[in-house]
Nucleic acid binder design. Structure first.
Length: 208
DNA sequence: TCTAAGATGGGT
DNA sequence: CCCATCTTAGAA
């Protein structure tokens, strides 16, 4: 069995003005976590882009508060948001300081630490281990306390698999952002085609 | 202070 | 379909 090789993504990858392009490029990359002494990894199969300046779905749109402050920092750190009081959603901050963009990681394919992920998740069927933004965070051990974590450190980081297999990309509208009006129609959700690990498809927003 | 709503997920 | 669960933002 040949050992796969990975290269940690450099700061320049994140400090880029085009968050939509970064969301696409993150597909196929691998998230590693070393949290609470447990080492896990998962291949990103689904992302969504959020832009602070022209996208009402973005938490940082027209507001700079304690919660969104991390998004106004330089790219390459984690923004972890607590949704519905229960789910920790893992985002990757992009762009330079002052420009608040982020990519939400919506699903990963589990690669390393399957047993530990299973334990963190409790009793769930293996097929649902990391399928969805809340579940992947739980499986990887990512918590709101990790907001601000530098993705070039040794706690949470993202790497590229060298000689990775090519794949086809699918584009869709983002999930659960109907409140954003017209911006809910932006095609800013990206998926690896035919991956069994992408989150469930829900109804698309409608225009009225 | 008070309150409504939310980038979900799991069960019925 | 239903609802747990609690932080946050914005209003009062």
């Amino acid at each position: 069995m040949d050992k796969k090789q990975y290269a940690k993504l450099p700061r320049a990858f994140y400090v880029d003005p085009d968050v939509v392009k970064i969301a696409q490029k993150l597909l196929g990359k691998v998230v590693f976590t070393h949290i609470d002494g447990i080492f896990t990894a998962g291949r990103i199969v689904e992302t969504e882009a959020y832009c602070g300046r022209n996208d009402r779905a973005c938490h940082a749109f027209a507001r700079r508060t304690a919660r969104t402050e991390v998004m106004y920092g330089p790219g390459g750190q984690a923004y972890v948001y607590l949704c519905y009081g229960i789910h920790h959603l893992f985002n990757i901050v992009t762009n330079e300081a002052g420009l608040a963009d982020a990519v939400l990681v919506r699903a990963v394919e589990p690669l390393i630490g399957l047993e530990e992920m299973q334990q963190r998740r409790g009793c769930v069927v293996p097929a649902r281990l990391t399928k969805g933004p809340g579940t992947l965070s739980q499986a990887l051990g990512i918590h709101t306390r990790h907001t601000g974590t530098d993705l070039l450190g040794d706690s949470i980081w993202i790497a590229e698999e060298l000689h990775a297999k090519p794949f086809e990309m699918e584009t869709d509208v983002r999930i659960g952002v109907d409140y954003a009006g017209e911006d809910a129609l932006l095609p800013w959700r990206f998926l690896i085609k035919d991956s069994p690990w992408v989150s469930v498809k829900k109804k698309s927003p409608t225009r009225n």
